[in-house]
């Protein structure tokens, strides 16, 4: 049961490497040895922490999410008002880039046929919705938003963002980040906006 002494350093490095390699080549096209090479460790060094490639995928996404939420909470703390915070979240999401979106797509495809991956996807998704709902609750407490159900709203905004993220990732010429942002903020105004409050940010 002895653990490599540099293990605490290795695990995050492996996860970062896994996120890169899987985004580039997909779960199917990724070999454990590729991840090990990118992380400058050995294949047994990777397998010590992660038994399967699916585990690497779900943990890499969980870890990327962790970093994202840390940065997000720092950023959001500097913004005044719940609407501005939602606008920032909308801005950040597709800007995360193809790498992040493609990992989510890998997760969806793997979840189609593997209940464990499905459960991991559901956990990550719930956390994302909770982050949105928390901002809505703050906005409602401050009298900035209408009293719509925050969890329902988060579900709808999350679905809308994902739907558009797919089209952005596919480089659909009909969809631009600006249009996506407009659609998302229109939803904020439609479901949460108070009368007489302008919907422009």
């Amino acid at each position: 049961m002895s653990r490599p002494t540099t293990g605490h350093v290795r695990r995050p490095a492996i996860l970062r490497a896994a996120a890169e390699v899987i985004a580039e080549r997909g779960v199917i096209g990724t070999r454990i040895a590729d991840v090990a090479e990118r992380a400058e460790t050995s294949a047994p060094g990777v397998l010590y922490w992660f038994a399967t490639k699916d585990e690497l995928l779900t943990e890499a996404l969980a870890s990327a999410d962790e970093r994202f939420y840390e940065e997000l909470s720092d950023e959001l703390a500097q913004l005044e008002g719940a609407r501005a915070r939602l606008a920032r979240i909308v801005d950040l999401w597709p800007a995360e880039g193809d790498g992040e979106v493609v990992l989510w797509m890998e997760l969806w495809v793997r979840a189609l046929r593997d209940p464990e991956v499905g459960a991991a996807r559901e956990r990550l998704d719930r956390r994302w919705r909770d982050a949105i709902a928390a901002i809505v609750r703050d906005g409602q407490a401050a009298g900035e938003f209408l009293p719509a159900d925050p969890d329902d709203f988060a579900l709808t905004l999350g679905a809308l963002m994902d739907g558009f993220a797919i089209q952005l990732a596919l480089h659909d010429p009909a969809v631009t980040p600006e249009r996506v942002r407009e659609h998302c903020m229109a939803l904020v105004q439609e479901r949460l906006g108070l009368e007489g409050v302008p919907d422009a940010i």
């Binding site: 709808t156 679905a159 809308l160 994902d162 739907g163 009909a174 969809v175 249009r179 659609h183």
Partner: peptide
């Protein structure tokens, strides 16, 4: 556009 995005999401 919005309907298709919601259908996918």
């Amino acid at each position: 556009d919005r309907t298709l995005a919601l259908i996918d999401g």
